[in-house]
């Protein structure tokens, strides 16, 4: 029905282990596929959200306290109408996102494409101190 406000809030907390990447990524895909408000290619959006969440969670795992079995990563997806926000929280030392340069795609480096993917598929990405740690926030207008 038209005129109604679509609100979806998803919050997931998982151990900071890479074996949970597929769980988080698959949830993001399923959420994307329900977004009637998105007029573009929803299957492509599903892949891209899977990818940016996978990259953001790997980032959080790498920056969290290594080897701490009790450490967790918290992921939130918030959709209100055409505004999609993703938050990924970690408890690590953090890093300066603005100091991460665009990758040199002609160099055959094995690393350095994760933040490039986030910046490519989302409208903006930020990383800041929050809640005894850090939060990586990504925003996309679903137009």
């Amino acid at each position: 029905m038209g005129g109604e406000t679509d609100i979806i809030n998803v919050e997931i907390v998982v151990p900071n282990q890479t074996r949970y990447l597929s769980l988080i990524g698959n949830i993001a895909e399923q959420v994307a596929k329900t977004l009637d408000v998105y007029t573009g290619d929803r299957d492509a959006l599903a892949y891209h959200l899977n990818l940016v969440l996978t990259e953001a969670m790997v980032n959080a795992i790498q920056h969290a306290a290594p080897g701490d079995a009790n450490e967790t990563v918290r992921v939130c997806m918030r959709i209100r109408d055409k505004d999609l926000r993703i938050y990924v929280y970690d408890h690590g030392q953090g890093f300066d996102l603005n100091a991460v340069p665009p990758p040199n795609l002609d160099a055959l480096n094995e690393r350095g494409r994760g933040i490039f993917f986030m910046r490519t598929f989302m409208d903006w990405v930020s990383y800041r101190k929050a809640d005894n740690g850090n939060v990586l926030e990504m925003y996309k207008r679903l137009a």
Partner: peptide, 16 residues
């Protein structure tokens, strides 16, 4: 059906 930056990196390592 899904590859991320580290998957690309592993293939690049193999190539090199």
């Amino acid at each position: 059906r899904f590859i991320d930056s580290s998957g690309l990196g592993a293939l690049l390592s193999g190539y090199k």
